[in-house]
Design a protein around this nucleic acid. Structure first.
Length: 213
DNA sequence: CATGGGATTGACT
DNA sequence: GTCAATCCCATGC
């Protein structure tokens, strides 16, 4: 997608990226979970301003912001809002589409649901490294394309973001309703008691609903 | 120049 | 559930 798609409110971009397709080489997957980050709130790297670490977030919309997390994992973001505003959408999970055997080799895991269920996992599965920081998500090597024509817009869930300690209250995490491929269990939507249906539908991690942080 | 802290994952108790 | 791995960089002396 072109820069105009990304040059909008970062939460709108995060929602509309659900259902789009990330490609890298022979591998591709449907985006099923995202989070929005904006310089106005302290969970965003750009909150501290434009520094060597954060400069890509301020670059042109549609760039890839790839950074190292915990000294270990690569995280893939799509830079959003107009150039000069620090904002991006973290891609948190994919439903694997093609290149699945190569994903399994890179991950050392067989189960389809485990290949791209997490921001560090999907970059490993697709072979996306820090050297791709700043590259253009329309021109590649990593590209994001719209859903296949005729695909109905997916129903979207919103919740609070994961793994952060600041601005934890903002509901800027988005996912497709099919939680089979998401990175962490989705918080329970209704207030009713558990009848077992929720857990039965989520082979996702060990436990059923509820948060661990 | 030294230190602290992560937008996480996987192994272990 | 708990915890280490691992490294760039922002911050403070």
């Amino acid at each position: 997608m072109k820069a105009e798609f990304y040059a909008r409110d970062v939460c709108v971009v995060a929602r509309e990226l659900i259902g789009c397709i990330v490609h890298h080489g022979p591998c591709a997957g449907v985006i099923v979970e995202t989070e929005a980050y904006h310089e106005s709130e302290p969970a965003c790297h750009a909150f501290i301003g434009n520094t060597p670490r954060t400069r890509t977030l301020y670059a042109a919309p549609g760039c890839a912001y790839v950074y190292r997390s915990y000294g270990v994992h690569a995280m893939l973001n799509a830079v959003a809002e107009v150039e000069g505003v620090g904002a991006g959408v973290l891609i948190r999970a994919l439903q694997p589409l093609v290149g699945i055997e190569q994903m399994r080799e890179r991950r050392g895991v067989h189960e389809l649901e485990q290949l791209c269920a997490g921001p560090g996992r999907l970059t490993q599965a697709l072979g996306i490294g820090l050297e791709l920081n700043g590259t253009d998500l329309d021109r590649g090597p990593v590209t994001i394309s719209p859903p296949a024509a005729g695909t109905p817009p997916p129903a979207i869930l919103a919740a609070t973001r994961v793994g952060i300690t600041k601005a934890v209250e903002l509901p800027w995490r988005f996912a497709s309703v099919d939680t089979r491929f998401v990175s962490r269990p989705w918080p329970r939507q209704d207030g009713s008691s558990d009848d077992g249906a929720t857990a039965a539908r989520s082979p996702n991690r060990s436990a059923g609903a509820g948060s661990s942080r």
